[in-house]
């Protein structure tokens, strides 16, 4: 399975929704605490099904501060949105030379931007969540944010669009709540006091638009049904430290992938008794970036503070040559 070594510490990895062999990686120098950042665009060659594949870099973009997250546009195959630690959201176009990039730098957040997510249904807008406690909604045709969602009482670590509803999204915050929002409503439509500790990530079930998963500093992942959110549908225990990212599989409704500060990537099936169905300990530092390919069933990518980006098929050893 191919490995890519980045010069900085990995923070996020995302598969392209257009090409099964492309992925973007957000990295930051010195663990994202101080220094520059770089956005890499990688190519798996020749195809993911070929056993002797490798990862090559197509292009990279430097930033003056760490890049904490990135996401691909769902409307243009060459457009990438980057969440930068200086509070800006930058747009990069791969079809243009590096000197012409970024094509846009949107600076409204007053603290580090921690996540970005592109609307997969309407494909014309994206969200950014920041340590300034707010979430901002942006559209590609405007130079400023359309609106700001400010209700969380602490840093917002992640915001994720509902994969089936163009107006609904969820957010995860350090105030120990996850909130469900409708962009047409002035405030949040639902507040889930989901964990006793900070919530670092959330994601929607792609096959059931009422189910979300939250990952927390309390080392657990909880699955919730927004129609009856008093009790979680499932509690997934197994990580040794805070769970940094959680992601529902695009191919199987009950499969969840997660990565954690315990340096492992885990796969879960929350519908079955023994929910932990896979554990990968290939990273030697905190595993903080994770994605599952929309185009290839079972293809996973992860990155971490060991500066490595792994791409592997579920069931295989990520370190296998």
């Amino acid at each position: 399975m191919p490995v890519f070594k980045a010069p900085f510490n990995g923070y996020s990895v995302k598969f392209s929704p257009f090409y099964e062999s492309q992925l973007a990686v957000a990295t930051a120098q010195n663990f994202g605490i101080l220094g520059n950042g770089r956005l890499h665009v990688l190519q798996l060659s020749p195809t993911p099904s070929n056993p002797s594949q490798s990862i090559t870099e197509i292009s990279s973009f430097d930033t003056a501060d760490g890049v904490y997250d990135c996401c691909w546009s769902e409307s243009h195959d060459s457009l990438i949105v980057a969440a930068v630690a200086d509070g800006s959201v930058k747009l990069y176009d791969l079809s243009l030379p590096p000197t012409a990039n970024p094509i846009r730098s949107l600076h409204e957040h007053t603290r580090e931007v921690h996540s970005v997510d592109y609307n997969v249904v309407r494909k014309d807008s994206f969200l950014s969540s920041s340590w300034d406690d707010t979430i901002k909604l942006w559209t590609v045709d405007r130079p400023a944010s359309v609106r700001t969602f400010k209700e969380h009482a602490y840093c917002v670590y992640s915001a994720a669009w509902n994969p089936r509803h163009a107006d609904v999204f969820a957010s995860a915050s350090g105030d120990c709540t996850a909130r469900i929002w409708d962009v047409r409503e002035p405030g949040s439509t639902m507040i889930l006091p989901a964990h006793e500790f900070e919530i670092l990530s959330c994601d929607w079930n792609k096959y059931d638009d009422c189910v979300i998963a939250t990952a927390s500093v309390d080392k657990s992942i909880k699955v919730w049904d927004v129609r009856s959110f008093r009790v979680p549908v499932a509690v997934l225990n197994g990580h040794g430290y805070a769970v940094r990212k959680v992601k529902f599989s695009p191919h199987r409704g009950s499969v969840i992938a997660s990565c954690s500060y315990d340096m492992t990537v885990c796969l879960w099936d929350y519908m079955v008794e023994d929910s932990l169905i896979g554990r990968y300990d290939h990273h030697t530092e905190f595993a903080v970036g994770l994605d599952m390919s929309v185009l290839v069933d079972g293809l996973l990518a992860s990155t971490g503070w060991d500066e490595l980006v792994y791409v592997w098929q579920h069931g295989m050893d990520p370190r296998a040559p």
């Binding site: 929704p17 243009h76 639902m190 096959y207 638009d209 009422c210 129609r227």
Partner: peptide, 22 residues
């Protein structure tokens, strides 16, 4: 390429009941 390939979950119907969203 202004439209990515259709998502796997868009081919399948939603499995659960009505959602509490407008």
């Amino acid at each position: 390429g202004s439209n990515p390939p259709i998502k796997p979950w868009e081919r399948a119907g939603s499995s659960s009941g009505p959602a509490p969203f407008k």
